[in-house]
Simulated assay, not measured.
Amino acid sequence: MSNFARFCLLALACGAGVAWGGNQKVYRCGQTYQQVPCATDTAGQAVDAEDPRNAEQRKDARVSAAADKRQAKTLATERVQREKAIQPQQAPLVIGQKPAEPAASVPTPGANQSHSKKRKNKAPEPDRYVAPPPTHKR
């Protein structure tokens, strides 16, 4: 028998063993699951890990999952297209930068009368906000 034939036979035997070993026991050791019994210091329990669904139910679940995957891909594509179509309203405002002046509007009569008295010694406002120094009151 050639080496290639031996290799194929060995691979076939291993594959059959893996496929046939579907009813292996699963043990719960604390918060983990494993295929070998737990160490002697932890009390492990054998868990029934066999899939209780029949072939038709597994097929329906695969079909449903594939449909969900297609729908998610479609929705993601639509979302990307909508995000690309969004145009910003205006450039972002930088701290310290004054906003653009609005368009000239028609003055309303009497609007400036309430603000006619101004302080004469008022200091001009700076372009940026300057925080006052902290005061310590204890």
Rank of each mutant, 00 (worst) to 15 (best):
G22I: 14
P37I: 01
R28T: 00
K84D: 05
P37A: 06
A13D: 01
N54D: 07
C8L: 08
A49T: 10
T42E: 05
R62T: 06
I95Q: 14
E78S: 04
I86E: 13
C38F: 01
E83Y: 06
R58E: 02
G110C: 05
A91H: 03
L75V: 12
N121P: 00
T77C: 06
Q35K: 15
K122V: 02
P126A: 02
A103M: 08
R53G: 00
D127E: 09
R128W: 11
A16Y: 04
P88E: 07
E78G: 00
D48S: 07
G15M: 01
G110Y: 04
E50Q: 15
E56I: 03
K73S: 09
R53Y: 01
Q57P: 02
W20F: 11
E101I: 12
A55M: 04
A11V: 07
D60R: 15
A43M: 02
P107Y: 03
S105T: 12
A61Q: 11
N112V: 15
W20M: 04
S64L: 10
A55C: 01
H136A: 15
K117L: 10
V80G: 04
K137S: 11
A91P: 03
E83G: 06
P133N: 08
A49D: 13
D127C: 07
V106Q: 13
E56W: 10
V130S: 10
K117N: 10
V94C: 10
A111K: 02
N112R: 15
Q71P: 12
V63R: 13
K25P: 13
N121F: 00
Y33I: 09
C38S: 02
P102W: 01
A11I: 09
E101F: 12
R53A: 00
N23C: 14
A16R: 11
P88C: 11
K59Y: 14
A85Y: 04
V130C: 07
K98Y: 04
A103K: 12
K122P: 01
V94Q: 14
I95N: 12
A104T: 12
K137M: 07
E101Q: 14
A39F: 08
A19H: 15
A67M: 06
L12A: 04
E78C: 03
K84S: 06
N54T: 00
D41R: 04
T77K: 15
Q90N: 13
G44T: 00
G110W: 05
L75D: 14
G44M: 06
D48H: 05
F7Y: 14
T135I: 14
K137E: 09
V47M: 07
C8K: 05
Q34M: 09
A49P: 10
N112I: 14
G30D: 03
A5Q: 12
E50G: 08
I95A: 10
Q71S: 15
K84I: 00
P107T: 01
I86D: 06
P109G: 03
P107G: 00
P124S: 04
G44V: 00
A104L: 08
P109H: 04
L10R: 08
R82P: 01
N23G: 13
G21F: 09
P37L: 05
H115W: 09
L75M: 14
A49S: 13
A76C: 05
D68A: 14
G30P: 00
R28Y: 03
N112M: 15
T108N: 13
F4E: 14
K98N: 02
E50H: 15
P102Q: 01
Y33V: 06
P107Q: 03
K73W: 05
A19D: 09
P124L: 00
T108K: 12
